[in-house]
Design a protein around this nucleic acid. Structure first.
Lengths: 196, 196
DNA sequence: CCTACCGATCGGTAGG
DNA sequence: CCTACCGATCGGTAGG
């Protein structure tokens, strides 16, 4: 009876994926049933299978969409001939905006990737590892060029990625600070510290 | 036939909780079945119910054990008359060690608390909120006493908590750095930044 | 601690 | 898009 509406910039499948991301974030992949998803869309569970192949496929779409967006952005950054400091600032900025703009998807990619089946699981982990390695390389170059202190590049990258990733919990504080101020505060903290 | 062995410092129930934490971390609360848990312990699923009341009870035990440990430690810190810098260092150190020593439990408390039923869900969130507020107060005092720059206290606490929380992903890098060096690097980064 | 079993719910398919 | 249904698995209980 009710039909799944294709959203402005996408197919019905895109609509299903979007709602799935929101449910997976709230209740986890395993904790979300296809019947719940169908109900959120106003159809019967069986009708979903006219648009998608399986529940796992939904998780795959979400995880790789996010991974590809981060990888593409890193490509752009590496193609611009900027200092390590500027590159890092740009990266932090992008992570913050992704978390604010595509909250559900980024959250799911960060937490539910473990439920991917092979070979997707290995692909995802390889892609993430490559991303981290390229970030570590940026920090290493910054150390070499004396832009940064003599930090441990892996720990630095790790600390920065963890901090921005934690923005998924920021919802509760949203009312206290604007995205721009948040971005400035956090970037400043991660680059310059807080001690006077 | 096989019996659940009580561990050195605990009851059989403690053993069940420990194994449950490890499974919940790996596969999520919803993704872990009581039959899997039973199999890991070498018994039938029905036998578990001689020691525990329900699956939910396991999650409650894990989440509140962790929450109480963090709260207790914060009590100690507030009772010692130290500067804000030292208090923050001590807090970061404790978070790092909790993550390394009680990895499964801390991970589950960080990710699976959403699956708690009421009233446990509200209790847990209140306790966590109170913890964050007390940390924010420490940073505020540090700013007042000019120990810290004029940072946004909520963002600073948030950035620090996110960074240490991210240690749950550290497993992959373990071989490259000792816990002591990790602790020093991360504390230094979060307090002093990385720019020269 | 086990066997045996309950009703509910799961992801997915057949057929229209 | 639906109704009707499949076998598998879920958390948990009865009874010994």
């Amino acid at each position: 009876m009710a039909k799944i509406s294709a959203s402005k910039n996408g197919t019905k499948k895109d609509t299903i994926i979007r709602i799935a991301a929101s449910l997976f974030r709230k209740k986890g992949f395993s904790g979300t049933s296809m019947r719940e998803l169908a109900e959120s869309l106003g159809v019967e569970a069986s009708s979903l299978y006219n648009h998608i192949g399986s529940k796992s496929e939904l998780l795959q779409s979400i995880c790789f969409k996010v991974a590809n967006e981060f990888t593409s952005h890193l490509n752009e950054i590496e193609n611009q001939n900027n200092s390590a400091v500027i590159r890092l600032k740009e990266l932090i900025r992008f992570h913050i905006h992704m978390m604010l703009d595509e909250y559900d998807e980024v959250f799911v990619a960060n937490h539910e990737w473990k439920q991917l089946d092979e070979p997707y699981l290995s692909n995802f982990l390889n892609q993430r590892k490559a991303y981290e390695n390229r970030l570590t390389e940026i920090v290493k170059q910054g150390v070499q060029k004396k832009e940064f202190k003599n930090v441990h590049p892996q720990v630095a990258v790790f600390t920065i990625l963890s901090a921005v990733r934690g923005l998924e919990l920021w919802q509760r504080h949203k009312k206290n600070i604007s995205p721009a101020a948040l971005e400035k505060s956090m970037t400043d903290h991660l680059l310059n510290g807080i001690i006077k």
